[in-house]
Amino acid sequence: MARTNSIVPLIILFLVIGVLAAVGFVVYTIVQDISKKTRAKMEKRHIQFSKDGVKVSMKEVNDEDYKDQTQSVLVNMWNHASFPAYKSRFWSNGVTAVQDKDSTKLYGSFC
C-alpha cells in the first residue's frame, strides 16, 4: 500500500507536465504560423525583418515607366498652371490685344 501512495502523485505530476507541454506546443505552432503569414504579407510590401533591423526596399520600376510617370506629372502641372500677369511678346495666348497707335508699347520692338 505504501508503494501505491507514492506512485499516484508521480502519475499526476506526469499528467500535469504532459498537459502543459501540449498547451505550450499548440501556442508555439500558432505563433510560428502567424509570424510566417505576417512576414509574407510584409515582404509583399517590400519590408523585410532581419537581425539588423527593418529593411525597406523600393518596388522595382522600369526606367521607361519612371520617365512616363515623371513626364505625365510635369505635363499636368504645366497644363493646370496659370500665370495671371504674364503677357507673351510672341503670341497672344488667346487674349485679343487692343492695338494702339504705337504698337511698340504692347509688343516692344519685335513687331
Rank of each mutant, 00 (worst) to 15 (best):
I30L: 10
S92H: 03
A81D: 08
I30N: 11
R39V: 14
S82T: 14
N76E: 15
L74F: 15
A22G: 05
V31L: 07
D33P: 00
F49V: 03
Q48I: 07
K101W: 04
P84Q: 06
E60F: 08
C111Y: 13
K44G: 15
A97V: 06
G53K: 04
W78G: 04
I30R: 13
A97W: 03
Q48L: 07
A40P: 01
K41I: 08
S103C: 05
R39H: 14
K51V: 09
S92K: 01
T70C: 05
L20S: 06
D52S: 15
D68I: 02
K41L: 14
S6I: 10
P9A: 01
H46E: 04
R3E: 15
T70R: 14
K55F: 15
A22M: 03
L15P: 02
V26G: 03
K55M: 09
H80A: 11
L15M: 07
Y66S: 05
V23D: 03
K51T: 11
E60Q: 13
L13I: 04
L20M: 10
M1S: 12
Q69C: 09
Q99F: 01
Q48F: 15
T38E: 06
V61E: 09
T29Q: 14
V75M: 09
S35C: 01
K105L: 01
N5Y: 09
V95S: 05
F83K: 09
M42H: 08
I34Y: 14
K44P: 02
S72K: 15
Y86T: 00
K37H: 06
V75W: 12
G18M: 00
A40L: 07
M58F: 13
R39N: 14
R39D: 15
T104N: 07
V31I: 08
V27C: 04
V8Y: 15
Q71F: 13
S103E: 08
Y86P: 02
K51N: 10
N76V: 01
R3I: 09
I12H: 13
E60W: 09
D102C: 01
G108Q: 05
G94I: 00
S109V: 13
C111A: 10
L20V: 10
R45K: 14
A40F: 00
S88K: 01
A21V: 02
V27Q: 00
F110S: 12
K36H: 03
T104E: 05
Q71W: 14
Q32R: 13
S6W: 11
V61N: 01
L10P: 04
A40K: 11
K101Q: 06
S35A: 09
W78P: 00
L74A: 05
M1D: 10
V8R: 14
K55W: 14
S92N: 06
N79R: 14
T104R: 12
Q71S: 12
V98A: 09
L20T: 08
T70F: 13
S6Q: 12
K67H: 12
T38R: 05
V8E: 08
Q32L: 07
K37G: 13
L20N: 02
G53P: 08
S92I: 03
C111D: 11
S57C: 03
R39A: 11
N79M: 03
S50A: 08
S6R: 13
L74V: 08
